[in-house]
């Protein structure tokens, strides 16, 4: 545990792995600007042990933040049998993309699968909206 433990809303570093979800992709086909797409995208799935350790609760929201962006998303337990401590799962979407590094080393390919961000309780903040 680092410096974060002394703050009111402690921050922890997590790795984020993105994945595809048929229901989220279906919502995208219907409307990438729609509520259902946002509902299914602005979510991070965490390991149950991590939720406990980070004093975060199912049904609440989390702030995910790094040098490239900051988003507020819903927080849910992943439901995987096997633990995945320190790793959070998000579907590919503008919410996960907000945290992808802009450093590419000139390769033309962003590091979509290497997202590291800090996570903390979002308290009363609203889920980030891109529909502006």
């Amino acid at each position: 545990m680092g410096f974060g433990q002394f703050l009111k809303a402690p921050e922890y570093d997590i790795k984020i792995i993105t994945y595809r979800d048929i229901f989220q992709s279906t919502a995208l086909e219907s409307s990438g600007c729609g509520d259902e797409y946002a509902e299914r995208s602005a979510v991070i799935l965490l390991d149950k042990g991590d939720l406990k350790k980070m004093v975060l609760k199912d049904g609440r929201k989390a702030v995910l933040k790094n040098n490239f962006g900051r988003v507020v998303v819903h927080l849910r337990p992943s439901g995987y049998e096997e633990g995945h401590e320190g790793i959070g799962y998000m579907t590919n979407s503008p919410w996960s993309n907000a945290l992808v590094s802009s450093e590419t080393g000139g390769s033309g390919v962003p590091k979509f699968k290497m997202i590291i961000a800090s996570i903390s309780d979002a308290k009363d903040e609203k889920v980030t909206s891109f529909d502006v």
């Binding site: 962006g69 993309n97 907000a98």
Partner: peptide, 23 residues
């Protein structure tokens, strides 16, 4: 939507034309 936000935002500074069936 599909590019990193920090890169996609550059599109806001140039004229963009879209051809798409959906919003």
């Amino acid at each position: 939507s599909s590019l990193p936000g920090s890169i996609a935002k550059e599109l806001l500074d140039i004229p963009v034309i879209t051809i798409d069936p959906c919003n």
